[in-house]
Amino acid sequence: MRWQGAIGFLLLLLWACSSSDSTGELEFRNFWATPGKKGFNAALYGVIENNTDFPETLRTVTSTVAKVTEIHRTVHTDGIAMMQPVPEGVVIPPHSTFSFRPGDYHIMLIQLQHSLQVGDSIEVTFSFARMAPQHLVVPVKWR
């Protein structure tokens, strides 16, 4: 019985140390922001998991670290990389995930208000169509 308790404690510890933030209904996994100098642009990447029975739409992302924050997608056509703003937001299907990753969908931090260095962290707010806004603290790192 004692070892079962120890395993339970370890599982709880693992859960607490994992890099995901969860409301139960929405889970934010492995979010990170790229470094950048003041005035430069940076990007935000990570995975959102929708654990509900309904599709959820991420409408906007905001952060005081940048003058503007936009959802974008990089599309490759005939060797040309094109940046496409996604003002309508992105839909996360029920019991499914949506990935923001380099070279694909990403959240753009336009014109940083101050420099971001590896080891810093930034506050970001995700606003959804159905659920309440979610606040996240995101580390700054390379990859």
């Binding site: 003058k67 503007v68 490759h76 060797g79 040309i80 990389a81 094109m82 940046m83 336009i110 014109q111």
Partner: peptide, 25 residues
């Protein structure tokens, strides 16, 4: 090498900004 500016957009302070669609080479 292809490079074309995206349409100009404006920041809240009125400054214009743009991105560049370009050959990934």
């Amino acid at each position: 090498i292809y490079a074309v500016r995206s349409p100009l957009k404006k920041l809240p302070d009125g400054t214009a900004y743009y991105f560049i669609n370009h050959t990934d080479a």
